[in-house]
Design a protein around this nucleic acid. Structure first.
Lengths: 135, 135
DNA sequence: CTCTTTGCAAAGAGTTTGCAGGGTG
DNA sequence: CACCCTGCAAACTCTTTGCAAAGAG
């Protein structure tokens, strides 16, 4: 067996599309964005390539929102804000509270932390001002 | 329309089962645990009752692990440790770093935080000692 | 009695997978 | 030219939903 990975235009396109945007798209959103430029692209290929990118550490998952996985092209650890109204996912830049937390977990529980995800939910700024009336 | 909620043995049982355990079961796990005592129970009812309990704030969701939603009977905010090997979800007692974080989010981004979830992943203590050889 | 809850089974939705053909090294 | 990657569509899995019957107030 060979197992070496070959370069693929589609995979590069998926990664580029993921990195090009600030939002945290679903597989289907990525598919729809790429479709105009790659008319023969199929949704299955997007899923397959996303899973390869995750495996290679070039992409990450944020969370499952409304039953759909959200992907992220940024792999440095950072937190997210998930709006309960528009369902947008925003990046949060927060000071690092992780290092001491990891040490505490290791020492008190004997677990070996390797990564984490911090998602804050609520109403984003846009929805706050838009929605004074409803909700 | 009436809309008043009626008490239901099944719903109480679901909540009790959720509170009885330290783990963070899936709907199906709960179903299998309850089945011996409620032989006529159906999986759909578990799902329906879980969603009612979430709505009433009596239960919470932790995260989607391997495509299945994990539920939690504890509703005070707390963090979780998700083992990448045995897929167990453990409670973490961490000092509160949230209050200042919420304020920062509100002031810098204009978002209104309402809740959050913090999940740390890695190897749990049991898997660490068990798995010296593999993985 | 009225409205909610339930069992059952079918429908939905997101994701994965098998296969035959095309692409890359 | 060996093996990976892709399109297509079917298969899978988790969750939701419609309906008629049972249960609660």
């Amino acid at each position: 067996m060979d197992n070496r990975r070959k370069t693929s235009k589609k995979r590069e396109a998926v990664l580029a599309a993921l990195r090009a945007v600030e939002d945290h798209p679903t597989a289907e959103t990525l598919y729809m964005r790429l479709k105009p430029d790659y008319p023969e692209l199929s949704l299955g290929t997007v899923y397959r390539n996303l899973s390869v990118l995750l495996e290679e550490g070039l992409a990450a998952t944020v969370a499952t929102v409304d039953g759909q996985l959200r992907y992220d092209g940024r792999t440095e650890p950072h937190a997210h804000f998930i709006c309960r109204r528009c369902r947008r996912v925003l990046d949060l830049e927060l000071p690092d509270t992780v290092t001491p937390m990891y040490r505490a977990i290791r020492e008190e529980l004997g677990c070996a932390p390797e990564g984490h995800s911090l998602n804050v939910s609520g109403l984003c700024a846009a929805c706050r001002s838009a929605g004074r009336a409803g909700n």
